[in-house]
């Protein structure tokens, strides 16, 4: 049996140092709900595992001075669900994160892991994209920030440079009249992988949509920010024509594949259906009468 080195640094600097020093032979361990499965299947054979759960910044949830949230990349779904305020401000992001795996998996699985794993079907990512989350990333060359939608570059691939570690997600403050939601299509009711996932965040003023963002998952090599769908919604009262235009934008943004989880035709159709349903939930949360 191959030996594996396990490190659990207390500081981010130590973690970055060890990660960079391993020169690609190391893997970051947050919840481990993807990594350990990959190791068991023989897909991943890391020489070193760097557990980031001992680092305070990676496992804390903070309400920032401007009214936003900063969520450590290794915070588990269950811990986030127990936060007294997060779920009331960002119910869509929370429901997306809480769809990862089973109840047991929720005790470990994190939004950071979900994003870094790089699945186009990752449930939390479309919701984070819709929320306008900004990532904090730290590496050998220091810190940088990046809009979440720019993070994935292909299935299983992301824009982290060698030695870089995802630190946290920053979510902006919410104007009054805002709401978000995430819906996914799965054949079962749980324990499944999204065939299509849609995240929507929007703001209403007197019934008119003043801001919107739409994230679309499982229909392309990466999760997409669908700007055209948002454009179709902004300035409208979310009437049927606006919804249909936004749905059409989602369908147009799809570049899906036929695979064991769904067909191209099916995914395209369903992206439009889910867009309309997700907007309805987000609008209700935003306080639409």
């Amino acid at each position: 049996m191959t030996d594996i080195r396990y490190l659990a640094p207390q500081t981010l600097d130590e973690a970055v140092g060890a990660f960079a020093a391993a020169q690609g032979a190391a893997r970051i361990l947050a919840g481990g709900t993807d990594l350990l499965v990959q190791m068991r299947n023989g897909v991943a054979r890391p020489g070193t595992i760097i557990d980031i759960k001992k680092i305070a910044e990676l496992t804390s949830i903070e309400e920032t001075a401007d009214g936003g949230f900063r969520i450590g990349a290794a915070v588990s779904g269950a811990v986030l669900a127990e936060h007294p305020r997060f779920g009331t401000v960002w119910p869509g992001v929370l429901e997306a994160i809480n769809l990862i795996g089973s109840t047991q998996v929720q005790g470990r699985a994190s939004p950071g892991g979900n994003l870094c794993h790089g699945s186009p079907a990752a449930d939390s990512v479309p919701a984070m994209v819709a929320a306008g989350a900004v990532l904090t990333i730290q590496g050998p060359n220091g810190r940088r920030t990046l809009p979440v939608e720019q993070f994935p570059v292909g299935p299983g691939r992301n824009s982290l440079a060698p030695g870089e570690i995802l630190v946290s997600f920053s979510l902006p403050a919410r104007p009054k009249g805002s709401g978000d939601a995430y819906l996914r299509m799965i054949p079962r009711t749980e324990m499944d992988i999204a065939v299509v996932g849609v995240g929507v965040s929007l703001t209403l003023e007197n019934g008119v949509c003043t801001a919107a963002r739409v994230g679309l998952g499982a229909v392309a090599p990466t999760v997409k920010l669908v700007a055209d769908a948002a454009t179709a919604l902004v300035g409208t009262k979310l009437d049927d024509a606006a919804l249909e235009a936004a749905a059409a934008a989602c369908r147009a943004a799809c570049k899906p594949i036929d695979d064991k989880r769904g067909t191209i035709e099916y995914r395209i159709k369903v992206s439009g259906v889910l867009l309309k349903r997700t907007v309805a939930i987000a609008a209700e949360r935003a306080g639409r009468a």
């Binding site: 079962r188 749980e190 324990m191 499944d192 064991k260």
Partner: peptide, 16 residues
Amino acid sequence: MDNASFLDYRMPVCSD
């Protein structure tokens, strides 16, 4: 076989 796991070989779960 392309779906040799309980994730993609979809047996009903209780909530179904």
